[in-house]
Simulated assay, not measured.
Amino acid sequence: MHSDLTQKDIVSYVALGDSFTEGMSDPYPDSDSVPNGRYRGWADRVAEHLARHVGEVRYANLAVRGRLAGQIMTEQVPRAVELAPDLITLCAGGNDIIRPGGDPDATAQILEAGVARLSGTGARLVLFTGFDTGSLSVMRHLRGKVSTYNMHLRAIADRYDCDVVDMWSMRVLADPRAWSWDRLHFSTEGHRRIALRVCEVLGVPVDEDWGAPWPPTEPRDWRSARQEDLHWAREYLVPWIGRRLTGRSSGDGLSAKRPNLEPCSPCE
């Protein structure tokens, strides 16, 4: 039985992962540039929600875009163990699986090694399944790999008594408005809904429903859709392929946005 975080006077929270946990593409209003501006994302939002119900929340976000599972385990997990928080969220493996030849079985083994080490801290540990890529043309072919990884992840969660945020079942994420222009990262609204879902798993009260229906949209003509596809291919697909071919990452040279446990203010 997991402890009720909202009954504590002080809660420390560390978020581990890649671009998903870093918060791309959910910039703060004061972000001056993208992709190097300040991102908010679901993890920041969860910390803010938690701060509404706890005397003090100390929050660190060690996630860096582009990181593979092995990098997260070697770069971020030791720091999380050192910080000894009450709550740890870990989402890893997505960048491994989307790469050519990505092996969900091998990636799950890497993940389990990190989970085993984190579980020794006594922190409440939250894992995330991969989302259903069936509605995304650019990633539809990965659906089988993601589902295989999800089965491994649930088994790992059972072995180490972890909470699981089931992203696969969040059908609201199939709507294009849950995704940013790059079609690889969630939009501000996508991050907001994911944060609400995480709070639900943690038992943190919220006033909104993550699964609320999307409002109706105006139909688009095929010319507009075609122009959007061309823009996406030029601005996002070609650079992504270039990084894969040259072994580069969008996170090269970047470090964690919140490397230390620092006070977090409630959301407005």
Results as ranks from 00 to 15, higher is better:
residue 12 S to I: 05
residue 93 G to S: 01
residue 20 F to A: 02
residue 186 F to Q: 10
residue 87 L to V: 06
residue 60 A to M: 04
residue 82 E to S: 10
residue 45 R to H: 00
residue 39 Y to G: 00
residue 149 Y to W: 06
residue 164 V to S: 03
residue 198 V to Y: 00
residue 117 R to S: 06
residue 43 A to W: 08
residue 56 E to V: 03
residue 256 A to H: 09
residue 39 Y to N: 08
residue 22 E to M: 10
residue 26 D to N: 13
residue 55 G to M: 05
residue 153 L to M: 04
residue 28 Y to P: 02
residue 28 Y to M: 02
residue 176 P to N: 09
residue 211 G to K: 08
residue 6 T to G: 01
residue 213 P to I: 14
residue 28 Y to C: 03
residue 79 R to S: 03
residue 249 S to V: 02
residue 147 S to F: 09
residue 21 T to Q: 05
residue 7 Q to I: 08
residue 199 C to L: 00
residue 123 A to D: 02
residue 130 G to C: 11
residue 50 L to N: 05
residue 132 D to E: 11
residue 137 S to F: 08
residue 266 P to S: 04
residue 259 P to G: 02
residue 147 S to T: 12
residue 168 W to F: 10
residue 143 R to W: 03
residue 24 M to K: 12
residue 138 V to E: 13
residue 170 M to L: 14
residue 213 P to W: 14
residue 204 V to Q: 08
residue 22 E to C: 01
residue 203 G to D: 10
residue 170 M to Y: 10
residue 4 D to L: 12
residue 129 T to K: 06
residue 135 S to C: 08
residue 219 P to E: 08
residue 2 H to V: 13
residue 74 T to V: 04
residue 177 R to S: 09
residue 45 R to K: 12
residue 218 E to P: 01
residue 25 S to K: 09
residue 66 G to K: 06
residue 192 R to Q: 10
residue 236 Y to R: 09
residue 263 P to C: 06
residue 15 A to N: 01
residue 172 V to K: 10
residue 37 G to E: 09
residue 48 E to R: 14
residue 218 E to S: 14
residue 230 L to S: 12
residue 201 V to H: 00
residue 243 R to Q: 10
residue 110 I to V: 15
residue 235 E to Q: 14
residue 111 L to N: 05
residue 78 P to H: 13
residue 258 R to W: 10
residue 65 R to L: 04
residue 227 Q to W: 12
residue 171 R to A: 09
residue 212 A to S: 13
